[in-house]
């Protein structure tokens, strides 16, 4: 941390690219990377329920700023194009994206990152809200990610009544297959997930001897990183981001200059 010096060069490029998604569909993604030959680790970002929005494009650049090849695919592509929150509304009305589709999308984005000549061969997956749930799910159902960050993902624990053809298995039931270390950040005032559900998930991780860190923040609810929302909590967000950087640095081998 805090390795940046005022006499250092830095630069990045950030742009919309196209990558394969689930079943080979070509989809839009926002890709940001530091300038230079690297090698850099990669991070796939899974956007939240409000859509493939400005916060996610900013956060993709934030990861590049910290030394990552960062890609955020638009997982709502099957709902067409328009303003992000209008497309998110269509996704919401449709009950979201099937888990199988997200797993397919992330597998393709992981392959894209690792194919880049600047890649150091390692990659993580990061998600918030529904994307946090999906990040954990993807880290269980695929091999190839080296670390996963789940920020306040709801419905990792699901009742039998919540299971549908789109969500046939509760992510917690895949815990035994988790393929990489997990960082989880949660707010104790959140009801989706509740602290009790987070504790239940933690028990399952312990049961299978998984490597994980869970942090439950007091006086924080859902989405406490979102600086433009009423749920933003400055102190908890700063600490949470520091935990993200330390975790990824440990498992992905970045040369973070921030």
């Amino acid at each position: 941390m805090h390795k940046y010096r005022t006499d250092m060069y830095e630069g990045m490029i950030a742009e919309t690219v196209t990558v394969p998604g689930h079943n080979g569909t070509i989809i839009n993604a926002y890709f940001a990377r530091p300038l230079g030959s690297g090698p850099f680790p990669g991070v796939v970002l899974i956007h939240h329920a409000p859509g493939w929005d400005e916060w996610y494009r900013e956060t993709t650049r934030k990861f590049a700023h910290h030394g990552y090849l960062a890609i955020s695919p638009n997982i709502y592509y099957q709902f067409g194009h328009g303003a992000p929150e209008d497309i998110a509304a269509k996704a919401r009305a449709a009950g979201g994206v099937p888990d199988d589709d997200v797993v397919g999308d992330m597998t393709e984005s992981l392959g894209y990152l690792k194919s880049l000549p600047q890649s150091n061969g390692k990659a993580g997956v990061f998600g918030t809200c529904s994307g946090g749930r999906q990040a954990f799910l993807v880290a269980c159902r695929t091999k190839g990610f080296d670390a996963v960050v789940d920020c306040w993902g709801g419905r990792v624990v699901m009742s039998q009544q919540e299971l549908t053809p789109k969500y046939p298995v509760a992510p917690i039931d895949y815990t035994k297959d988790l393929s990489c270390p997990l960082l989880g950040l949660f707010g104790e005032e959140d009801q989706f997930p509740t602290p009790q559900q987070v504790a239940q998930h933690e028990q399952e991780l312990k049961k299978y001897g998984k490597t994980y860190e869970f942090h439950m923040y007091p006086k924080a609810g859902h989405g406490f990183f979102y600086y433009d929302k009423s749920g933003y909590r400055q102190e908890q967000a700063v600490d949470g981001w520091n935990k993200v950087w330390a975790f990824f640095e440990k498992y992905l081998g970045t040369t973070d200059k921030r």
């Binding site: 409000p50 929150e85 509304a89 005032e189 989706f192 009423s230 749920g231």
Partner: peptide, 19 residues
């Protein structure tokens, strides 16, 4: 479409979202 979820704009932890 009527959802019960975290709002994107309303100053509340949870909201009924109607589209």
């Amino acid at each position: 479409s009527v959802s019960y979820d975290h709002p994107d704009h309303a100053r509340a932890e949870r909201a009924v979202i109607i589209d």
